[in-house]
């Protein structure tokens, strides 16, 4: 059984945005959701994380239907979203951002300490800036913090929306590498991206166009299909 199963998912904002997409992500995979602006990528992950209510279809996480559950519940269930634009708490320190990330586990102090150490381990820069207000961090550091904050809830499924947006290629690569490590440590990851530089880290690629899924492949299928030319308009690195 796949960790996440999406079946005929339909979502709209008064007008249809997702026209009934279906896909699965196996436990331990890193899936990449590609597509141009407006294709429905953010809508897809936001719906999975509970920020949007689906009009129809099913979202099964670890076998149970989670469609329509609020985000506060889904965090407890093990689904965490790193939202588009990072959304760190600017006036709070890095430490306190992480502390809020562990809200659902706030009564398990040992666990929280351990998670924080893990995050600092992934992102040593955050450790250096632990007492600094998040609003004063660079874009890359804020992205790291946003991912770190999501990890504090000990998710089984981590959704990252536009992980590399606004980052330099080198910094984007760093972020992808850390995501790979997170994945290697057992967290299933779905990354929304427009940057094909993420492909080498992907176990599964999902390509969306105008609210539908036009490609879904794993392993060699990704490498063999000429994704860039076929679907992504020769997109940039």
């Amino acid at each position: 059984m796949a960790l996440l199963e999406i079946e005929e998912l339909r979502v709209g904002y008064g007008f249809p945005v997702l026209m009934g997409i279906s896909f699965e992500v196996e436990e331990g995979e890193t899936a990449v959701l590609f597509g141009l602006n407006g294709a429905g990528k953010t809508t897809t992950v936001s719906t999975i994380a509970g920020m949007l209510k689906p009009d129809g279809g099913a979202i099964r996480f670890d076998g149970s239907d989670i469609a329509g559950r609020p985000p506060t519940q889904l965090v407890r269930d093990g689904v965490a979203l790193v939202p588009e634009g990072r959304r760190v708490f600017p006036a709070l320190s890095v430490s306190n951002n992480l502390r809020l990330g562990s809200w659902t586990r706030r009564r398990e102090q040992a666990e929280v300490d351990q998670r924080r150490q893990l995050v600092f381990d992934y992102f040593p820069r955050l450790a250096e800036r632990a007492d600094q207000a998040a609003g004063t961090l660079s874009g890359g550091e804020q992205q790291m913090l946003a991912i770190g904050r999501a990890l504090m809830s000990k998710p089984r499924l981590l959704l990252i929306d536009e992980a590399s947006l606004g980052l330099s290629p080198a910094l984007a690569k760093t972020v992808f590498q850390v995501v790979k490590r997170i994945n290697d440590d057992g967290v299933t990851v779905i990354i929304v991206e427009q940057n094909v530089g993420v492909l080498p880290y992907a176990d599964r690629a999902l390509i969306m166009e105008k609210g539908t899924l036009v490609f879904s492949g794993v392993g060699d299928e990704i490498r063999n299909a000429n994704l860039r030319e076929t679907y992504l308009g020769g997109g940039s690195e």
Partner: peptide, 19 residues
């Protein structure tokens, strides 16, 4: 901290599990 966080980023606050 949650109150301050919610005042700045309500969306993110919900996403970490705080109502």
């Amino acid at each position: 901290l949650a109150i301050i966080g919610a005042s700045q980023e309500p969306t993110a606050t919900e996403l970490v599990g705080i109502s």
